[in-house]
Design a protein around this nucleic acid. Structure first.
Lengths: 183, 183
DNA sequence: ACTCACATGTAAAGAGTTACATGATTTT
DNA sequence: AAAATCATGTAACTCTTTACATGTGAGT
């Protein structure tokens, strides 16, 4: 399941331009999949070459032409096959937690700053997901959308609470160590 | 913060072979950083070339020679610098959640299977973290270890609970859609 | 003045994964 | 008999990230 297939997946929901797809990613699944233009545009070009999507070019006033892609029936079939063969991985790569792991090697204030920054990011993501709070009604035949949104909300809330409750303690411990080293 | 720097980080805690480092990764930070031999061994070779680690070769009976690495003072300094310059990213890439997002395109039993598999994996990871339940006492000058372990336990528990409480609903919704399509 | 939204793309570099290659010992 | 543990490494492949390249219009 790479960016190419995910684009195909988005196109099963609605027609879209590369730009739209990026937006869609950012809103709906930023918390579990990230993709930039550098991978989306080449993916769409390839899908087109393979006949899995069609493309209508639309001229615009004072703006570059829009390329609206739609999925073909071959594309839909390919996506379904890909889904069935996808290994259900779930990988986290957190430089933030690496930093927390080695917090004892950082200035205590830096630790505090990192934690509050991370909390802010989480709040931003939670705000983004809030826009999907009506997913159950808006997408009655896509129950997975509400499911993943609620999953994301649950995870983000749990992480946020953890940092709020234990972040201070970590900073305190690091400070204490600092003083010991200094003495 | 790449595998190279993380290896350096592990070596600030204790001397280790490439094999040991992999073990260490698996136990202590599997929930937020993954690395295989294919990235660890080349990383150690480079660190050695750069003088950031030293290496003692130890012959063994009936087993290949062991290469035990230790960090040098230059290595320690390099790691501290790297830490201070590390962007606190936290990225999730979940094919599992992609599958859940598109659950309506999968056979309902498949959805159920995916969820229970994922829950089992989580249980395994929780078991792994349990071995670190005494981290606060075992590593009194590394408070970040207990912090990240508890963070991981919190996240895994929250995810597990979510799947337990809502996984069935998703499967039910998908089943209902299936019948509608069939009719 | 500056930043955000709209809109598409390329190219090089960087990083990690997977598969390959080898092989004895211990546990199940 | 099979699987896991111990132990090291290479090479090709795949994929993504980052930086570059260009430009208008609207809002603050």
């Amino acid at each position: 399941m790479d960016v190419k297939h995910l684009c195909l997946g988005v196109l099963t929901i609605k027609d879209a331009t590369g730009y739209d797809i990026k937006k869609f990613f950012e809103r709906g699944f930023r918390h579990f999949f990230v993709a930039g233009y550098g991978s989306i545009y080449p993916a769409l070009a390839e899908l087109h070459k393979e006949g899995l999507v069609e493309c209508r070019e639309m001229a615009q006033d004072k703006l570059p032409d829009k390329k609206v892609y739609s999925i073909t029936s071959a594309g839909r079939a390919a996506f379904e096959t890909a889904l069935l063969g996808t290994e259900p991985r779930h990988k986290v790569r957190s430089e933030f937690l690496v930093l927390m792991y080695f917090a004892h090697m950082l200035p205590p204030e830096h630790v505090g700053l990192l934690i509050s920054k991370r909390m802010q990011e989480m709040e931003k993501m939670l705000d983004g997901l809030e826009q999907y709070s009506d997913a159950r009604e808006s997408f009655p035949d896509h129950p997975g959308i509400a499911f993943t949104v609620e999953f994301g909300q649950t995870m983000l809330a749990a992480a946020h609470t953890f940092l709020k409750e234990h972040g201070g303690d970590l900073q305190t411990s690091v400070s204490a160590l600092d003083h010991k080293v200094a003495s």
